[in-house]
Deep mutational scan, measured.
Amino acid sequence: MEVVDPQQLGMFTEGELMSVGMDTFIHRIDSTEVIYQPRRKRAKLIGKYLMGDLLGEGSYGKVKEVLDSETLCRRAVKILKKKKLRRIPNGEANVKKEIQLLRRLRHKNVIQLVDVLYNEEKQKMYMVMEYCVCGMQEMLDSVPEKRFPVCQAHGYFCQLIDGLEYLHSQGIVHKDIKPGNLLLTTGGTLKISDLGVAEALHPFAADDTCRTSQGSPAFQPPEIANGLDTFSGFKVDIWSAGVTLYNITTGLYPFEGDNIYKLFENIGKGSYAIPGDCGPPLSDLLKGMLEYEPAKRFSIRQIRQHSWFRKKHPPAEAPVPIPPSPDTKDRWRSMTVVPYLEDLHGADEDEDLFDIEDDIIYTQDFTVPGQVPEEEASHNGQRRGLPKAVCMNGTEAAQLSTKSRAEGRAPNPARKACSASSKIRRLSACKQQ
Rank of each mutant, 00 (worst) to 15 (best):
Q7I: 15
L9C: 13
G10L: 15
T13A: 12
G15S: 09
E16C: 11
L17Q: 15
M18L: 07
S19A: 05
V20S: 12
T24W: 14
H27M: 15
R28C: 04
I29G: 08
I29F: 01
D30W: 10
D30Y: 00
D30P: 15
T32H: 15
E33N: 10
E33T: 15
I35S: 12
R39K: 04
R39Q: 01
K41S: 12
A43F: 09
K44V: 05
I46E: 14
L50W: 02
L54T: 12
L55Q: 14
E57T: 15
S59I: 10
V63Q: 02
K64L: 13
E65L: 02
V66H: 11
C73T: 15
C73P: 01
R74S: 02
R75A: 15
A76G: 07
A76M: 00
I79G: 02
L80Q: 12
K81A: 15
K81D: 09
K81W: 03
K82F: 05
K82A: 11
R87K: 03
P89W: 06
G91C: 01
A93R: 14
A93L: 07
N94P: 08
V95T: 15
K96W: 03
K96I: 06
K96D: 09
I99C: 14
L102S: 02
R106T: 15
K108G: 05
V110W: 02
I111M: 05
Q112R: 03
L113A: 02
V114Y: 14
V114F: 06
D115N: 15
Y118P: 10
Y118E: 00
K122R: 15
K122A: 08
Q123M: 14
K124A: 07
K124D: 05
Y126G: 03
V128A: 02
M129L: 03
C134G: 03
G135L: 13
G135V: 10
Q137M: 13
E138L: 07
M139N: 05
L140I: 07
L140H: 00
V143P: 00
F148Y: 05
P149E: 13
C151T: 06
C151K: 15
H154S: 02
C158I: 13
C158W: 02
C158V: 05
Q159N: 04
Q159W: 05
Q159E: 09
L160W: 01
L160H: 01
I161L: 05
E165S: 11
Y166L: 04
L167N: 03
L167E: 00
L167V: 07
H168I: 01
H168W: 02
H168M: 02
G171C: 02
I172G: 04
K178P: 00
P179H: 00
P179E: 01
G180R: 05
G180F: 04
N181P: 00
N181Q: 03
L182H: 00
L184F: 03
T185W: 02
T186L: 13
G187L: 09
L190D: 00
L190A: 02
I192V: 10
D194H: 00
V197M: 00
A198N: 03
A198I: 00
A200V: 05
H202G: 10
F204H: 15
A206T: 02
D207H: 11
D207Y: 01
D207L: 04
D208S: 09
T209G: 11
R211H: 10
R211P: 08
T212A: 11
T212W: 11
S213A: 11
S216M: 01
F219L: 07
Q220D: 03
P222H: 01
N226H: 03
T230V: 12
T230Q: 11
F231H: 04
F231Y: 04
I238F: 01
W239M: 01
G242P: 00
V243A: 06
L245F: 00
Y246D: 00
T250E: 05
G251T: 08
F255G: 02
G257R: 03
N259W: 05
K262H: 13
K262R: 08
K262Y: 09
N266T: 04
N266V: 04
N266M: 02
G268A: 05
Y272N: 15
A273M: 04
G276A: 11
G279I: 11
G279H: 15
P281R: 05
P281D: 12
P281T: 12
L282F: 08
D284G: 06
L285G: 00
L290T: 06
E291H: 08
Y292C: 02
Y292I: 07
E293P: 04
R301S: 12
S307T: 08
R310Y: 13
K311Y: 06
H313L: 12
P315K: 14
E317W: 15
A318C: 09
V320W: 03
V320L: 03
P321I: 13
P321S: 11
I322D: 08
S325M: 01
S325G: 05
K329W: 03
W332P: 15
R333G: 12
R333L: 10
S334D: 12
M335T: 12
P339Y: 08
L341D: 14
E342L: 09
D343F: 10
D343M: 14
G346Q: 15
A347F: 11
A347H: 00
E349G: 05
E349L: 12
E351W: 12
L353T: 12
L353R: 14
D355W: 14
I356W: 15
E357P: 14
D358Q: 12
I360F: 04
I360G: 12
Q364A: 13
T367V: 14
T367R: 10
V368G: 11
P373C: 10
P373H: 12
E374T: 13
E375D: 14
E376A: 11
E376D: 01
E376Q: 05
A377I: 13
S378A: 12
H379L: 07
N380E: 12
G381K: 14
Q382P: 10
R384V: 09
L386C: 10
P387M: 12
P387N: 15
K388R: 13
A389Y: 07
A389F: 10
C391E: 14
N393E: 12
G394R: 08
G394Y: 11
T395V: 06
A397T: 13
A397N: 03
A397W: 04
A398W: 05
Q399I: 06
L400T: 07
S401P: 06
S401F: 12
T402W: 12
S404I: 08
A406E: 12
A406K: 09
E407S: 14
G408Y: 12
R409L: 06
R409E: 14
P411W: 03
A414Y: 14
R415M: 11
K416D: 15
C418V: 15
S422N: 03
K423L: 12
I424V: 10
I424T: 12
R425C: 09
R425H: 14
L427C: 03
